[in-house]
Amino acid sequence: MTGEDTDVGAVLPDAYGVRVIVCVGEFDADTVRPLDVAAHEALDDPGVRRLVLDVSTVTFADSSVLYVLLRTCRSGRLVLAGPVPSRLERLFDMTEVASLFTLVDGVEAARSL
């Protein structure tokens, strides 16, 4: 599942073992499933050594997306590319989980880790 548009936004072509999922719009209990599926497909792919979620255009996120991010983070291969929108940052602050994630400014910075 690379190089295609999805309900999450887009999954960019893999490059050097890095898959980028561009997250666009709102994520809640009704809309988070495509992100969950795309993230886990990436983690199940042995050619993917890092998963980058571009969260810069997320307009809303609730605990449903936080659950997906935390489960995905356990793999040790997740990087969140920002800038992190204020609503998502507020969710991270309220739940005190920001320190659990690798956060970088932009997709290219995430790819180069």
Rank of each mutant, 00 (worst) to 15 (best):
E108G: 00
C23Y: 04
S63P: 02
E26M: 04
V11P: 10
S64K: 06
F27H: 08
A110L: 07
V22Y: 00
R49C: 08
L80S: 09
D30P: 00
L113T: 10
V84D: 06
T57N: 14
S86W: 05
D93P: 00
G106I: 09
L103I: 15
L78W: 00
A98K: 15
F27G: 12
F60S: 03
S112D: 09
D36M: 07
D54A: 12
T57F: 06
S99N: 11
L70C: 06
A39G: 08
P34Y: 13
D5Q: 15
P83D: 01
T59D: 01
R33D: 15
L43H: 07
A98Y: 13
F60K: 04
V104N: 02
L91N: 12
M94E: 10
A110V: 05
L70N: 07
G76Y: 04
A29E: 12
D105C: 00
V107D: 03
G25Q: 06
P46D: 14
R33N: 12
F60C: 03
G25R: 10
T95V: 01
E108L: 05
L66F: 01
R50K: 15
M1N: 10
D7C: 02
L69F: 05
A29W: 01
A110E: 04
L88S: 05
G25S: 06
F92L: 06
A39M: 05
D54M: 08
